[in-house]
């Protein structure tokens, strides 16, 4: 990963933060995209620097095409290109089984919000980096989805639908971008703890998932980061259009 330019969206906390730090530990140049909390993003950059890596925080709302275009331009100005794109950002979602909306309470706008957050955000960033990756005949796109698509152990309808859309989008993209030596893969985490989003998932739900999981625990942000780094690595150069499930064996396909 030496000196590869890696853009991680939604990298100021949780899984994104762990991914950013992991790439930094492999000597990549990491762009820490964040939406609002510049203080948290700066903390990630400090962590990266203390690991001896290079990190830069950049504000950018991935759901806004123009904002993404500007962000990518800025990256190109400073670092020349984007080699690896990790789409991790999602619009705020609290994984609370008790307070989730049931199928009959959801409105279309709930779905729209999630589709915008997941699919539109991914679409915008992919579209912006495609010309760069095509030109250099190299690129790695890794999109974060969820194992709930296959195993909706708690039916978070709107969130899971948004992520399922990303999965479909990623596979088509893999087909079209393969000839340019750009791989597009997904990582599907299981419930990942602790993160701000999963903090409200009650202990008994976490415990019941653990009991069903062959590896006997929940995912940690670092577990997800490891899988993402693998798909970005040289070892994964002949893998595209795939989804890697990082949920301790809860889903097997």
């Amino acid at each position: 990963m030496q000196d590869k330019v890696v853009l991680v969206t939604g990298a100021s906390r949780g899984i994104g933060r762990a991914i950013a730090k992991h790439f930094a530990s492999r000597q990549a140049i990491v762009i820490v995209d964040f939406l609002r909390n510049s203080q948290l993003a700066e903390e990630v950059v400090e962590d990266i620097q203390s690991l001896g890596g290079q990190g830069f925080a950049l504000q950018g709302d991935v759901t806004q095409e123009e904002a993404v275009r500007r962000m990518v331009e800025e990256i190109v100005d400073s670092f020349g290109t984007v080699d690896v794109l990790v789409n991790n950002a999602l619009c705020h979602y609290t994984f609370n089984p008790k307070l989730r909306k049931t199928a009959w309470e959801l409105e279309w706008k709930d779905y729209q919000t999630q589709i915008d957050g997941s699919l539109r955000g991914t679409f915008n960033t992919c579209k912006a980096v495609m010309p760069l990756m095509k030109r250099q005949n190299f690129g790695r796109v890794i999109n974060l989805v969820t194992n709930l698509i296959d195993f909706p152990i708690v039916p978070y309808h709107d969130y899971t639908t948004g992520k399922a859309a990303v999965l479909g989008y990623s596979r088509s993209l893999a087909k079209e971008l393969g000839p340019f030596n750009i791989t597009v893969n997904c990582v599907a985490p299981g419930l990942t703890y602790p993160t701000d989003s999963s903090r409200d998932t009650q202990e008994d739900v976490r415990e019941s998932i653990i009991r069903l999981t062959p590896l006997g625990r929940l995912a940690r942000p670092e577990d997800i980061a490891g899988a993402v780094a693998f798909l970005a690595s040289e070892e994964a150069s002949f893998i595209t259009g795939q989804t890697l499930y990082v949920d301790g064996g809860l889903t097997m396909r």
Partner: peptide, 8 residues
Amino acid sequence: ELDRYEKR
């Protein structure tokens, strides 16, 4: 199991 608990 204790090792997993330690991670959690």
